Computed example of a mutant assay.
Amino acid sequence: MWLQADTNRTAAGYEAARTEAEQHAVASERATAQTQRAFVLAFTDPELADDELELAQHLLTGLDMRATGLTPQITALVRDADTSGNLEIAPACSNLAVSLGYGWLWGGNSKVPS
């Protein structure tokens, strides 16, 4: 989704997707949308990302979603790198982002997903 790096619209889009999934009682889609919302917010609003990450972890409880289940860990790493000022974390985040296709967030890859 990422809408050409418009993270506010992206976060709102994931929130809308989560709400729609709640209305249709689709637990896996709800958890995925919430997890992605937390991930986006880790880059722009680490404090809000804390609450969103907590909700994502709650929604993932009891679901067997291996890949989505890893995203909260990645989100926490990104959030912590953004707020800690710890320069040792930044390269790990950058390498992880590039390997997952999000390198453009750190300038590691100029290709923005569509």
Rank of each mutant, 00 (worst) to 15 (best):
M1Q: 12
M1K: 11
W2H: 09
W2M: 11
L3E: 13
Q4N: 15
D6I: 05
T7R: 15
T7A: 14
T7L: 15
N8W: 05
R9A: 07
T10Y: 00
A11E: 03
A11T: 03
G13K: 10
Y14I: 06
Y14F: 15
A16E: 14
A16K: 13
A16L: 12
A16V: 04
A17F: 07
A17D: 11
A17W: 07
R18C: 09
T19I: 14
E20T: 08
A21E: 00
Q23R: 10
H24D: 10
A25P: 00
V26W: 14
V26G: 03
E29F: 06
R30A: 14
R30K: 15
A31W: 01
A31N: 01
A31I: 00
T32I: 11
T32M: 13
A33L: 00
T35F: 06
Q36P: 00
Q36F: 11
R37W: 07
R37T: 07
A38E: 06
V40K: 03
L41V: 09
F43K: 03
F43I: 03
F43P: 00
F43S: 07
D45T: 06
D45L: 02
D45G: 01
P46F: 04
E47A: 14
L48G: 07
L48Q: 15
A49D: 03
A49W: 00
A49F: 01
D50I: 08
D50K: 10
D51T: 14
E52D: 11
E52G: 07
E54P: 00
E54H: 04
A56S: 06
A56I: 01
A56K: 05
Q57R: 15
L59E: 15
L59R: 12
L59Y: 14
T61W: 05
G62A: 02
G62F: 01
G62S: 09
L63E: 02
D64W: 04
D64F: 10
D64V: 08
M65P: 05
A67F: 11
T68K: 02
T68W: 08
P72H: 01
Q73W: 13
Q73S: 14
Q73I: 13
I74S: 09
R79P: 01
D80V: 03
D80Q: 14
A81D: 09
D82I: 10
T83H: 01
S84C: 12
S84F: 04
G85A: 02
N86R: 13
N86M: 02
I89T: 12
A90C: 06
P91L: 08
C93L: 14
N95C: 04
N95Q: 12
L96Q: 10
L96D: 13
S99P: 05
S99C: 05
L100K: 12
L100Y: 08
G101Y: 10
G103R: 05
W104N: 06
W104P: 00
W104E: 07
L105I: 11
L105E: 08
W106N: 04
G107W: 05
G107P: 10
G108K: 09
G108N: 07
N109P: 02
N109I: 04
S110N: 15
K111V: 12
K111Q: 15
K111M: 13
V112W: 08
V112C: 09
P113H: 09
